[in-house]
Design a protein around this nucleic acid. Structure first.
Lengths: 208, 208
DNA sequence: AGTATGCGATAAATAAATTTAACACACGGG
DNA sequence: CCCGTGTGTTAAATTTATTTATCGCATACT
């Protein structure tokens, strides 16, 4: 059995600098809500009906499905019993990589670490778009042997400043500044400042 | 992987008529606590150490292990991450029938239903002792063709009254009364009162 | 002995999950 | 059109999980 629900972003996920409402549950149940919604809809039940049969309230279901609360195991069990589905099966529900939508910071895949650190969102075997969280320590450099690959890439500087060279052009980008270019042009990132630089970037098709 | 912890009864489980402290969590996490204790001890961690590493408190671990609180999924996840063990694996941990110790009322196995209802504790493929919860509607009868099997059985009347015939002897037992006999003697239970009768009984080796 | 440390358990305080009660929206009939 | 019923969401109240702080009990070391 496999998850294949349609996910909707409740708040705009594009506003890079806006406040992100952190979940109050310390852990990462980013999937749990979607899973529950999926199995519920798969069972053809409304939140209210499921709630009534499970002996909980529809509000609880709603909050759980939207990851606004992390159910206690006993509640979850009560709920799943009416599906019916065991906790075992519920947690064993595979979320295939190609349908993953949410990723916790801790789940980002490290592609490079050291003075230059690249953290990738998701598994590129299933995607054509590569999203990276890049951290450059002061002095860090992608190397004088310029990068070149068959992609298009862009990004926005989140913190600090970076010197970007693309072909013949060179510029220092500060927090808020952005870039976008054809990766076949030789390019190079270099943190010439004294503070760490953080960039969120994208690349398609994925590099490496 | 399989559970094989040693279980200890906190309160005497023998006092048939004493108040049983119901868990405050509506569900049935009767296993969860033992499972967590098992995996924790298996990892060679104390409650305090596990708690510290998981970012929760030792008190929480203690309460969870004693089934005095049902953790939220996010808490449980944080805890399992230090073992390390996935939620999937945690819930997939099989509790083999032969090591099951606790059974919720809803888990008792119905052997007979109708005017005479037998609910069995556990799976007799793994046990030599059969515990039954028996309910006799008014007038209910195990039948004039007397029962006979190679066992020893006994029980205590919990509610109502029952007429028990064993061999040539016949008697009416009321709430609190008990019986114990060799099942090779032909026997028969009959509710001759106007109220339902409830009996808790045991049989070894199991009958059917 | 005395004292220190580690263990698990528990009472009271706090944070979070859950309920209660309401809102907003969509759909179908009178 | 208005009303009734269905949906999912959300604020405030309540219940429950979790923390903070403490206890009692071991074991080990002066």
């Amino acid at each position: 059995m496999v998850l294949s629900a349609i996910f909707v972003f409740k708040h705009s996920a594009v506003m890079g600098l806006c406040e992100v409402s952190e979940l109050n549950n310390g852990g990462d149940d980013f999937e749990l809500g979607s899973r529950l919604r999926f199995v519920r809809q798969n069972a053809g039940l409304s939140q209210r009906e499921l709630a009534k049969r499970a002996g909980v309230t529809n509000a609880a279901i709603s909050l759980i499905e939207n990851n606004q609360s992390s159910p206690s195991v006993s509640s979850l069990k009560k709920i799943l019993e009416v599906i019916p589905m065991s906790l075992t099966d519920f947690f064993a529900l595979e979320t295939p990589e190609e349908s993953r939508v949410f990723f916790k910071a801790s789940e980002l895949v490290p592609l490079a670490s050291g003075p230059v650190e690249f953290l990738q969102v998701g598994d590129m075997r299933h995607h054509n778009l590569q999203i990276l969280y890049e951290r450059y320590a002061p002095g860090a450099d992608t190397g004088r042997s310029m990068l070149q690959h068959e992609s298009e890439e862009g990004g926005i500087v989140v913190e600090g400043a970076i010197e970007l060279t693309v072909g013949e052009r060179k510029q220092i980008l500060k927090a808020g500044d952005a870039y976008l270019f054809d990766s076949r042009q030789p390019h190079r990132f270099r943190n010439v400042g004294s503070d760490e630089c953080v960039i969120i970037s994208a690349c398609t098709p994925p590099y490496l």
